[in-house]
């Protein structure tokens, strides 16, 4: 019975939620709302559970004087201080009905002068670590890493006005770089004696370089002779290759969720019930 009842509940609730998606009419929509409210109530209790668990772990660490117990003491001091300030609404207008953020409330002061700067400081350190990590990790060690590196450089440029400025002050610079890259790839094909890829890549490289040189020499850099701009390229990366990858991942995840949901509803997946020995 200990296993059958939870399996039955899962089946019934799962089927109701499934039907509700296709039949948004009474009683299914009302049942969905009732179940959602139940979920929200449980979520509120999860805060109590989370707080209790946090206190249990850190208080045990302090009582055993384990290494780093001082950090636990600070955590607990902060936790209980905020809990007391929030529960009793200290500092604000008298009575417990006023908002936590009411003028003069200690809760808002603690948020503004402790939590906010501490949180922002910790997060801002990321900029330094990202810079250091990208310096070490972004190396063109193989073909895939080179593609990643080039995409990263373009996005980085595009995220600033330098990308636009580059096209305005040096029109055709992207084409030249792109042409040079293609020429290099064509040279690699020539060395490997792969004639078909060589002719294809070589033709594109020649076209891009010739068109850009024509723009410089004949049009003397005037007119919009260039095809690529950094912002356009960034936009293309975001809405074509990036989007295709994201969609593929999302579809994969959705198929996984559908399969796992069916396994749960039909009682095939039972790991959430715990082991038989429990």
């Amino acid at each position: 019975m200990r296993r059958q009842i939870p399996l039955l509940i899962t089946f019934v609730v799962g089927v109701i939620m499934l039907f509700e998606a296709f039949i948004p009419h009474p009683p299914f929509d009302q049942l969905n709302e009732s179940l959602s409210i139940t979920f929200d109530v449980l979520a509120a209790f999860a805060f109590v559970l989370g707080g209790g668990n946090l206190a249990k772990i850190h208080l045990a660490k302090i009582s055993r004087s384990e290494p780093g117990w001082g950090y636990s003491a600070v955590t607990m001091a902060g936790f209980f201080a905020m809990l007391a300030i929030g529960l009793f609404k200290l500092g604000g207008p008298s009575g417990v009905k006023h908002a936590l953020e009411a003028e003069g409330s200690w809760f808002q002061a603690a948020y503004d002068y402790c939590f906010l700067p501490l949180s922002a400081t910790t997060f801002s350190l990321l900029a330094f670590f990202v810079a250091s990590a990208s310096y070490r990790a972004f190396r063109a060690k193989n073909r895939e890493a080179t593609v990643l590196l080039i995409a990263a450089l373009i996005i980085l440029l595009g995220r600033t006005l330098v990308g636009t400025a580059l096209t305005e002050t040096l029109p055709g610079s992207l084409e030249l770089m792109f042409g040079a890259l293609l020429a290099y790839l064509a040279w690699e094909q020539y060395r490997s004696k792969r004639w078909i890829p060589l002719s294809l890549i070589g033709a594109v490289a020649a076209f891009v370089l010739a068109r850009t040189l024509y723009g410089y020499l004949v049009l003397a850099g005037g007119g919009e002779f260039y095809l690529l701009t950094v912002p356009d390229l960034v936009n293309w990366i975001m809405v074509v290759p990036q989007l295709a990858g994201q969609r593929a991942i999302m579809i994969g995840i959705c198929l996984g969720i559908i399969s796992m949901s069916l396994r749960l509803i039909l009682g095939v997946e039972r790991s959430y019930l715990g082991s038989d020995n429990d």
């Binding site: 900029a127 980085l156 440029l157």
Partner: peptide
Amino acid sequence: PQTLAHLVIILFLVVGNIAYF
């Protein structure tokens, strides 16, 4: 600041790859 920080990162990426090659 974001523009300049991005430029510094780009510079480091270029220098790092030149040094690597």
